[in-house]
């Protein structure tokens, strides 16, 4: 719990294309409070996460109590209050992938980037997450890098792909 009254009163830059996207969505939904989840979806997709000032902006525009918006955001796993990174690497740890060595991949990635699942690099370039079965058991072990599924993954290949995408060496 920390004080953020200052964040709540901060105005968002109107020229930001992401803010424009949210504004357009809210207008389309007629500023109905019931459309909160749809609008949060748009915001989450635009930013990759939900910054507090964006939540404050949505709250103000829809005339909703701030606590209602916050409770919705924390209830659904889809919404995140922290940045997941510009590029994401999701390692499947479902049964099949686990048996085929998902843990070894995770260990190698942790060793290489010093990231545990759920963490993001300090420069926000890369975030590593785990998933419980992505439904590609035939391709075990499966890793998803920026929405591209890599089947029968090998730790070194994964690192190569990540380096190419993020520019980390």
């Amino acid at each position: 719990m920390k004080s953020d009254t200052a964040i709540l009163s901060k105005e968002l830059p109107k020229t930001d294309p992401r803010v424009k996207l949210i504004a357009a969505k809210m207008k389309k939904e007629n500023y109905k409070p019931d459309a909160l989840i749809e609008i949060l979806h748009t915001a989450q997709n635009a930013y990759g996460y939900l910054p507090k000032e964006v939540l404050a902006y949505i709250t103000k525009s829809l005339h909703l109590p701030p606590s209602r918006v916050f409770s919705t955001v924390t209830f659904y796993h889809f919404f995140s209050l922290k940045s997941k990174g510009e590029h994401t690497c999701i390692v499947c740890t479902g049964t099949a992938c686990y048996v085929k060595g998902a843990q070894a991949i995770l260990n190698r990635l942790e060793q290489k980037y010093s990231l545990k699942p759920g963490q993001v690099t300090p420069d926000n370039k890369l975030g590593i997450q785990v998933a419980r079965c992505i439904g590609a058991c035939g391709l075990a072990p499966a890793v998803v890098i920026d929405n591209d599924v890599q089947g029968k993954a090998n730790a070194e290949e994964i690192i190569e792909t990540i380096n190419a995408k993020t520019g980390i060496i």
């Binding site: 719990m1 004080s3 953020d4 009254t5 709540l8 507090k52 939540l55 404050a56 109590p65 701030p66 606590s67 209602r68 918006v69 916050f70 409770s71 924390t74 209830f75």
Partner: peptide
């Protein structure tokens, strides 16, 4: 509507506004 509930399961907590201290 100062109060609401955040998170789910055993991690639920009563919050005021954006999980800000009650006084603020």
């Amino acid at each position: 509507h100062n109060w609401d509930v955040m998170n789910r399961g055993h991690q639920v907590r009563i919050i005021s506004d954006f999980n800000t201290p009650w006084g603020e």
